[in-house]
Structure formats: structure tokens, C-alpha cells
Design a protein around this nucleic acid. Sequence first.
DNA 1: CACCAAGCGGAGATGCGATCTCCGCTTAAG
DNA 2: CTTAAGCGGAGATCGCATCTCCGCTTGGTG
Lengths: 222, 222
Amino acid sequence: MSRRTSSAAHPESPPVRPLRADAERNRQRVIAAAQELFARRGLDVTLDDIARHAGVGVGTAYRRFANREELIDAVFEGALQHLIALAEQALAHEDPWEGLVQLFLATGQDFADDRGLRQALLESTHGKDRAAAARERLTPAVSAVITRAQQAGQLRDDIEPSDFPLIQLMLGAVTQHSRNVAPELWKRYLTLILDGLRRDRDHPTPLAHPALDQDEFDQTMT
Amino acid sequence: MSRRTSSAAHPESPPVRPLRADAERNRQRVIAAAQELFARRGLDVTLDDIARHAGVGVGTAYRRFANREELIDAVFEGALQHLIALAEQALAHEDPWEGLVQLFLATGQDFADDRGLRQALLESTHGKDRAAAARERLTPAVSAVITRAQQAGQLRDDIEPSDFPLIQLMLGAVTQHSRNVAPELWKRYLTLILDGLRRDRDHPTPLAHPALDQDEFDQTMT
DNA sequence: CACCAAGCGGAGATGCGATCTCCGCTTAAG
DNA sequence: CTTAAGCGGAGATCGCATCTCCGCTTGGTG
């Protein structure tokens, strides 16, 4: 966690004056509250909500973060770094295919745990620029994992790096709908997709999650 | 209330009710405009928009359709019947696997062509009841197609009927994001998923659509 | 053709919910 | 103790969708 976002970001303060202790404390509270609410309810939560959750007045929230964008940036830098670390770990895995599987699983889990992250990175609605910048930082490591699995003859050759985020997008759609009923259902479909991604296979891989039963299904789809 | 929609199971049968000629004409215009706007821009379009598109006053729209629900029902009955017909055609296909593939393709195309249909049937946001009722009418035929493909030893056994709509949901997510750039991209991922669904396969099936190039990718994901 | 109720248009009333400001009060810091 | 930084949160403002109301138009009938 960084202290002040950056030195050259505020229009109202040429010299960077340190915040008063209580002010800095409140600032952190707001970020923490935003993190939690973004994760649980998405990027559309109101600043009023975040402020209330943080236990500060609305005015305080608006004083520190002129707009919602600043707040989102402050919150998601950490999540982005985590994703990058995951890709590098995947690349370090001894087996290329298993590394790819790990990457799908770990990334999918991050997205499953954080609705705001899904929106920021996978959905177009909230800020094109941030998503583009984030993906630019992620692409190299992800591409390397994919290429390595192809060179090992384990991943089909007609897959490209751009397929990775689109597959995550598909899984995110499942997560989004089943989150309250079967939060790990996305793993079922990931297994299916992985069986499609494998270059050769004679038997289906056991699915990672059972199908929804009637009740779960109704709750998920309605 | 005693209009035609209430007891009408058939959209084509006006059960004797005096509606002045110009009124009936306007009613049809509103339905046509709604169909087009729902398909293109989703179920959230305002009734004002629909009225303007239909070339009638807002008052006229509200006079015929007390609420948006009535209008949606009037518009989607036809689409639903088409989906049911598709499932029955799939069941009539001589090869069970090919029948299933056809069902995925044809249904996916309907969804790709109609954003409103995706929202009404796949997303929870707009009216649980309609979606549930629609799925109830669809399930029997879809289940039959799936079961038949499994009995023929072509579809893996651990798939269940509830997987069908969830796979369509995933494809719908791709469609939603790529619609302006590569409207058929969803077929790429359908091929992948089908390769995962097949019971046995030694070689990957050629993908139905090329991966996005850099420009297309940027436009899709941002 | 004459008549009139059915129908029409669309401005605007209503409601809702988010954003952001303002100012009197509180408190950290020197 | 002094004082300016900071606080809270009511409420002003804005935007936007829903739905109504009423004076005018028109189809259908005798």
C-alpha cells in the first residue's frame, strides 16, 4: 500500500504537504471501505455508501478523492500486481501445461473473489484506459505461459494470448450469476474449456464441480 | 386489461375486440419498434424511445402497454417459440452429436442477434418469472438432445441439461463485448467448448473463427 | 355529411437516486 | 492557547425515466 498516490496528481497542491494524522487515517479507511465494497458489490457503489462504510462523512471522501476514478486506481493497483505475480509463478511451474492450468485457476479465483476487478478488467463499461493499461502490464507474462505450453506440445497451436482474457470473461459471466448459490461453479466450465484447449486427450478430465441441481439452477438463472 | 395479450397464447389471433383501425396499426408499430430496439440496445430502452421510434406519442405507447413487462412479453413470445423449434429440429437431426452442435450454433446465433433475448433469458436482472417460464418450455427438448448425444456415446456423460444455458451465458458474454468488432467471435469459443464436451477426441477441431488481432482486441476489451 | 367517443400527442408533473458543495463545529499540531 | 486543517452531513442540484392529463384529431356509424 502506497501512501499518497503520486506526487504529480493534484491540481490544488503544488508542494506536497503531508496530511494531518487524522486525515491520513481517514484516507486509509476510505480506501479500505472502497476495496471491500467494490469487491462485493461492484464499481457502481456510490461514494456516499463508501463513506458511510468507512465511518466518515461524505465530505471527507470527496475531499480526498475528487472523483471515483482516483479511488478505483488507488484500490486496484494491488490487485493488478497480484495478477502479474500469478502469471510469473505460472511461468515458473516446472510443467508448462500445469503452469497454464494454475494460471487459469488462480486468475479465475481472483476474479471470483472481486466483482470490482471483473468490471475493471473484463468489462468495457468502467474506464477503457485503466483496463488497457492493466492488460498491457499483464500480457507479457501471460503470453509467455501460453507459448511455453504450446512449445511443449500440450496446448493446441491455434490459441493466442488474446484468448486468455476472453476465456476469463466467459468464466466471469458464470461467476457473476452463480456467486450466491455455487461460487465455484466456474471451475466446472474451466475444466471443460481446458479439455478443449488440450492438444491431445482421449478421455474427458473429471469436472471440477458438480452441475447445479434444480434449486441452485433456478436461483442462478433467475 | 381485457386486451388481447392476457389470454392470448397465440400472437396472431385477435380474439374479437373492437380496436379502432388506427389504434391497432399503432399498436403493431410499437411492438415492431420495441422488437428492434430491444434487439439492438437491450431491454433497458425507455418507452419514450420506443414510442419515438414507432412514430407515435408516448401516451399512445402507455395506453396500449401499461408497463414494460407487457411489451416484453408481446415481443418475446415469438423468439421463444423459435428457440423451441430449434431444439426440436436438433432432435430430428440424424446424428445426435451434430444435432447438439446445431442446437448450440442456432441458439447462439439467436442470442447473438438479439441483446434483449440474452437479457430476458440469460441475465437475472430483468424479470425472474419470465425467464423461468421460458426455460421451463425449453428444457424438455434441450434435455432430449443432450441425453441422446450421451446415449450415442458422443457427448461426455458428466454433462447435464443445466449446462446448456450456462454455456450459452458464457458465449453471450463474448458476444456482448465483441459485437461491434467481431460479431461471430463467440463461435471460436463454442468450438473450443465443443472440443471439451466431446467424449473422445484425439485432435483439436479447427476453430470456427480466428483470434482477435490487436486492434480488434483493444476495441473489444475496452 | 354530421356527430362524437375513441384515440392521439407530448409537455410536464412526479419520483428517485447520485453527485457534490457549503459552512458551522471539532481537533491536531506547534 | 491559537489557528488552520479537517470534519460531517443536510441539502442543493442535476439527470433521467415513468406515467398522466387534457385539448385536439379522426375513424366509424347512422
